[in-house]
Design a protein around this nucleic acid. Sequence first.
DNA 1: ATTCATAATAACAACGTTGTTTATTAATTA
DNA 2: TAATTAATAAACAACGTTGTTATTATGAAT
Lengths: 334, 334
Amino acid sequence: MPITIKDIAKQAGVSFSTVSKALRNSPLVTNKTKKRILKIAGEMSYFPNNAARSLVSRRTYSIGVVWPSIERLTHSVLITNINAMLETNSYTTLLSINQVDAAVDTFNRFNVDAILVFDDQQAVYDRSSLASNVPLLFYGISGNNPYPTIDANRKKAIQLAFDHLIELGHKRISYIGNLPSNDHFQEEKVSAFREKLHEYSIPELAHMVVTTDNMDSYDGYSAAKSLLTGSQRPTAIISGSYDLTRGILKAAKELSIDIPNALSIISYDHIPQMDELDVPITAVGVPILTIAETITQVLLDIANEKEVPDSIHLEPEILVRKSTHSVPMVHPTL
Amino acid sequence: MPITIKDIAKQAGVSFSTVSKALRNSPLVTNKTKKRILKIAGEMSYFPNNAARSLVSRRTYSIGVVWPSIERLTHSVLITNINAMLETNSYTTLLSINQVDAAVDTFNRFNVDAILVFDDQQAVYDRSSLASNVPLLFYGISGNNPYPTIDANRKKAIQLAFDHLIELGHKRISYIGNLPSNDHFQEEKVSAFREKLHEYSIPELAHMVVTTDNMDSYDGYSAAKSLLTGSQRPTAIISGSYDLTRGILKAAKELSIDIPNALSIISYDHIPQMDELDVPITAVGVPILTIAETITQVLLDIANEKEVPDSIHLEPEILVRKSTHSVPMVHPTL
DNA sequence: ATTCATAATAACAACGTTGTTTATTAATTA
DNA sequence: TAATTAATAAACAACGTTGTTATTATGAAT
């Protein structure tokens, strides 16, 4: 039997509506009684009943996040940031690891003020049939769904990376990334890479695009190991993600390949963690804080029934750190 | 403006209380009107308002999970399982990645029926001062907090592992595990290992206990690499976790050390994923499904105000797979 | 045909809160 | 001192539901 304002009212010898006002710090209650009531509320460890409150205010000041894939560092970082930002705006974040439709259903029942859907997996469900009275925001898929969407320009990111390497004089550039059958995002990166090869009239040799089965550091490690011990060693590698990069770094270290002097590495995923690796890694992508800020802002907007654009494309940036360097005059294997 | 039963009532030309009964499939409404109302509700994409419902029923049929550390595979697997099990019991799982006290506060406001706290990090807060009207269940810490707690007997697990190796004739056994300053669990495993050494009168040589900085696969990899290339190569390794084990496996593979013929590996963490590694790994620990089932059951119990034991200790099991074998007659390096 | 039982639906109260309206008290003025 | 105003606090209505109670319509039995 949870404590209610009526219990407090009885204890304080005052009407329950006075208690309500006191707890909400209304000017309609004198400071003295306010203080007294606050004290009693604390002692009785009172929690406002969100259900009752939201029933009358039509607001819960909470945001639901649908997060079906819980095992990716970049996403963890992103969610942690969004969570923190929402908190500073007095919003509470609720997560669900259910399927998108079930999670949306749940959040509707709880009357959250807005729902954020991480749809990176491109789960198979009919996005047009998602029943929801709560406004939705998608992160990850552009177009083809009727909800506001935020995504990152992955193509541009790879282009930035490539151009940076070209500027440094690199020609023998490899891309390491995973390429699952139905992942539109990874495809985008690979094709951007190939377009750039074409633009600079660089023929695509074997092993210039190394696709991995997974996004794990190991996949990066294995790919890099075989790539760097092969006959056609590149002078620079573009990595598809933070996790892969960690593996690549490890491989290089093992082979005593000096980074950046003997090999340049540039990685997708613009997260602070890039700075903490053995060699601080030059990174491309939309800064994770920018993503978090944008998502948070749009969430707050749709929660407050403001108009938001149908889709927001975030532009990537390049942050040059220690891992990229001009191509060595004498290539060790060339 | 969300659809309410009143809207449906108006549409169906019937009183709102009839709609309520129809939607809840009450026998007090004739099948004909029931069907009609259900149809209309569907068309209007109606969602029952949880706030209103829970206000009167005093139940939300939802469980809050406090999950401050979101980056560990075993925990992800565990939560995924608990989530699924609760779902089959018609309960909804809500996650929060906030600090324990803030998350408990949030869940109290939402009137979840029970709260599960993952307290593996032993976060610094006064557990006795956690204000909550909702029943709490802790996973991970035994004793010293006033709430029901479920934990796994880690000591026993390491003992099982050790005994198994002894049975196979191993004497040169190493333990690889991380040992952060304040992690009681990891300490428990290490000290269990040392006790066993003592029990079998095996002197502890250098590198018999290799502590890593992190729980990452890399840490396992590095540790194993140095351990296996050193002069005192063990015939068997006990690994502190799944992630470490993956690294160890990788290292062995690279060094062309045949598992299990040249080296036995046994790992903590009794999860199905152990079976899917290069070499299926013999594992000790409480089976993850057992943990999930126990937690789920206790959650349902406390949600329904049943009495539950103060603390439940789960007993570990050993599952022998392909990675352990009797000690080679001729030790390669001895 | 009138009464009575029953089936079907409608009306009502309650859950805990907030915002508004009304009543009470204290302070000020004439 | 009586009247008026300002201050405080109490009472009330509403939010969307559910469970209980009251009402109406239907049909059977006398």
